[in-house]
Structures are given as C-alpha cells and as structure tokens.
Simulated assay, not measured.
Amino acid sequence: MAILIPKKVPHRKVRKGKNSGIATRCNTVAFGEFGLMSLDNERINSRQIEAARQAITRYIKRGGKIWIRIFPHTPVTKKPLDVKMGSGKGEPQFYVAKVKAGTVMFEIADVTEEQAREALRLASHKLPVKCKIIKKEEF
C-alpha cells in the first residue's frame, strides 16, 4: 500500500486554517471523461484517497486511465495518549488534502459510461464527503 506523503514540506507543523467556500480551481473535468466531484468541504487523508483509488482500479480491472487530482500536502499533528495538556504541539501523524465543494478529486477515461459511473460510485463510499459523478462537457 503506497501512502501518499509529500517528499518535502516547507514547515513540519502547520495550523488548521479554514476550509470554507467553493472551489475556484480544479473544478472541471480536465483530463478524463468522467469525474468525481466533492459537494462538501472536508479534509481527506492519504489512506482514504488510496482506498478510493484501489476501489476504482479493482472495478475497472486495471483497464482505462485514472487521474488523482488531489494530494495530501497538509500535516496533521496529534499528541500521544495519556499526555497532559501543555508542553507544546504534538508530532505530525498523517497528511490531509483540504477539499472544497466543487473540487474534482478523481477522473477516469477509456472505459464505458456504466463502468465509469459504477467505479466512481464505489470510490465515493470510501470518502468522507458527499460526491457527484460528472461528465466532461462537450464544447
């Protein structure tokens, strides 16, 4: 299982920050034919992204092409169990991607529409956000 983590981060620990509003970038299907769009603002960790990727790959039996449009750059810290308050911030435990409503998280191509819809539906069950399956607009 290849967990997504950044090779290098500018700061080892970062503050939580806000994750509100709608996506202004990464909000259209750019590479594939079908996409999985988030309808909520949420933090998605690297394990959830990997689980969704595996669900898609297993369903399409390694056919087609998949693009993962999100990457977990943000470290999340946690203090160990049974440690009293104070004495600084905890150590980084895992990495998350901050996803806004309207972000296209996964894209898929070179498969039939039924296969794509079912694969993305299975992937959506692995993620902590409500999702919508979208098709590339033909211009």
Rank of each mutant, 00 (worst) to 15 (best):
E138F: 08
A123C: 03
I68H: 07
E42Y: 05
F34K: 09
I60L: 07
G21S: 08
Q115W: 06
G64T: 04
V111C: 03
P10G: 09
F71H: 05
P75C: 10
K7I: 07
G86R: 02
P92C: 09
I70Q: 06
I60A: 02
L4R: 11
G63P: 00
E50D: 11
A51N: 15
Q54A: 09
L81A: 15
R58D: 13
K126N: 05
T74G: 01
S87M: 14
P75A: 06
Y59Q: 03
R69I: 03
I60H: 07
N45P: 00
C131W: 00
N27I: 07
R117S: 05
R15T: 12
K136T: 13
L127K: 00
A97Y: 08
K84P: 01
V9D: 01
K61A: 14
K130A: 11
G64A: 06
Q48L: 05
N45Q: 03
E50N: 12
S124K: 03
S46E: 15
K136Y: 04
R62C: 04
K100G: 11
P128W: 00
T77K: 01
R69W: 02
L4P: 00
Q54L: 13
L120S: 07
S20G: 04
W67T: 07
V99L: 03
T77E: 12
P128V: 04
G88Q: 12
P72N: 07
P80V: 11
E107Y: 07
V83Y: 09
E113M: 06
